[in-house]
Design a protein around this nucleic acid. Structure first.
Length: 426
DNA sequence: TCTGGGGTCCTAGGACCC
DNA sequence: TCTGGGGTCCTAGGACCC
């Protein structure tokens, strides 16, 4: 029984994903130090190996490293998330041909699951997968194989920094596995972050091997069930199943820092309307509706720092994904937060109380006919935006001024998703 | 006014991930 | 001067009910 169910997990992780995406369409960036910035050109969120060697850390503020990068002729790209999402989807599609079960875990990672006895040489197979993705999409990936997700992830991390594995490491066939993890810090384990690794290290559990051999009772009493599961996964007992179909999201957030400080309520309303529009699209794409709308604003303090941020929440009479109604309630929430003579630097919206569309509680005062017309309008808008680019048409509430738009001064074109930005072949 | 156990639901906060 | 944006899960504590 157990035997037949036993699975092997693979993790395919794109190397320096955002930078690699930029290189696909701009080969002159290859072998040159390159970084990609976050929204608003705020921090560095992807680095080529050459950039990592210069000591630039993940998530570092751009302005702190600008001079060093200039001196070393580092190419700096603003984020082009539309492009990255499209390549990410293509890679996941290709990988689904190589394993019976596939989970798209993040924009740059895909978990695979195989039956234990189905394949004779998994290491060879992993190298094959790597070569196919490289050839078909042009993105370099690393493959880790293990008997649990946590071990596959660990194998992947090792393969990334050890060239002798040629981009694919099968933990099951790695004979010196225990020696390797005896020298790895406990914080390298998936699920052990900054705080947990600090606490574990203080208690004498410094390495991955230490954690693997820790006592169950102590772990669960001190750190809870989550860490206990991680320990079991390190021992090869699978506790984290593959999630092939993702359940609908429990919350949907859209937020941005502004390109410039905002003062007027009208501008804030436009920004909030834009966030709601994006969020409502996400809702409809999942077949969901929301009954709670929260709005968030952050203000610049007198000392120049950004404030904690303030929230205002409105409960709707019924769940909906109809953009104009969501904008209406978001604006109502915003009224409670707005104060004249303040400098707003960031805002966002969050949808909660999410239910499948169709299961909404009906409320008096809204006719079925009205709801039907609204649904049709939204469908039409989504279709048009899907075909002509996400901002082809949108509600008038979003406005056309967009002083609040994020900065992205070094952005590459939308090579794959917009006809007018297709790459020219000469 | 004090006494008790057990259960659910919700919220806030903390920790993690990319 | 300039510091991203999106998620998940778990736990503890309070309100409320029987």
């Amino acid at each position: 029984m157990m035997e037949s169910q036993e699975k092997i997990f693979g993790l395919v992780d794109c190397n320096n994903f955002f930078v690699s995406c930029e290189r696909v369409f701009n080969p002159s960036l290859r072998r040159k130090p390159t970084v990609v910035l976050s929204n608003n050109d705020g921090c560095i969120i992807s680095r080529s190996n050459e950039a990592k060697k210069l000591g630039i850390p993940m998530g570092a503020p751009y302005f702190e490293w600008r001079d060093l990068m200039k001196a070393h002729r580092v190419t700096v790209c603003s984020a082009n998330f539309t492009l990255y999402a499209d390549l990410s989807r293509r890679i996941a599609e290709i990988l689904s041909q190589f394993a019976p079960e596939v989970e798209k875990y993040s924009v740059d990672e895909v978990f695979l699951a195989f039956d234990r006895l189905a394949l004779s040489d998994l290491t060879e197979y992993a190298r094959h997968i790597k070569a196919v993705v490289q050839r078909w999409v042009g993105i370099p990936v690393t493959v880790g194989i293990g008997t649990t997700k946590t071990l596959a992830k660990l194998a992947n991390d090792i393969a990334k920094v050890s060239p002798e594995f040629q981009g694919a490491l099968n933990m099951i066939e790695c004979r010196e596995w225990n020696e390797r993890i005896a020298t790895m810090p406990v914080g390298d384990v998936w699920g052990i972050g900054y705080r947990l690794s600090k606490k574990l290290t203080e208690k004498g559990h410094k390495t991955v091997l230490d954690l693997k051999e820790a006592s169950d009772g102590w772990i669960s009493d001190t750190f809870g069930i989550g860490v206990l599961r991680t320990v079991w996964e390190l021992r090869g007992i699978s506790c984290l199943p593959l999630k092939e179909v993702l359940p609908p999201k429990k919350g949907i957030t859209v937020s941005r820092s502004f390109g410039e400080v905002l003062r007027s309520l009208d501008e804030l309303k436009e920004a909030v309307a834009f966030f709601v529009t994006r969020g409502a699209e996400k809702l409809r794409a999942e077949g969901s509706s929301a009954a709670i709308v929260s709005v968030y604003v952050s203000m610049k303090q007198l000392d120049g720092s950004h404030g904690q941020g303030e929230w205002s929440t409105v409960r709707l009479p019924m769940a909906t994904n109809y953009t104009p109604m969501l904008i209406h309630y978001a604006h109502e929430a915003l009224q409670h937060l707005y104060r004249p003579n303040k400098r707003f630097v960031k805002a966002g919206i969050m949808f909660g109380g999410i239910v499948p569309t169709g299961s909404e509680q009906m409320t008096f005062g809204i006719s079925e006919e009205k709801i039907k017309r609204g649904t049709q309008l939204m469908q039409t808008m989504d279709e048009i935006n899907g075909r002509w680019g996400a901002r082809a048409i949108q509600s008038a509430a979003v406005g056309t001024n967009h002083g609040w738009k994020s900065r992205h001064t070094m952005m590459s074109p939308a090579y794959t998703t917009r006809w007018d930005e297709l790459q020219l072949v000469r």
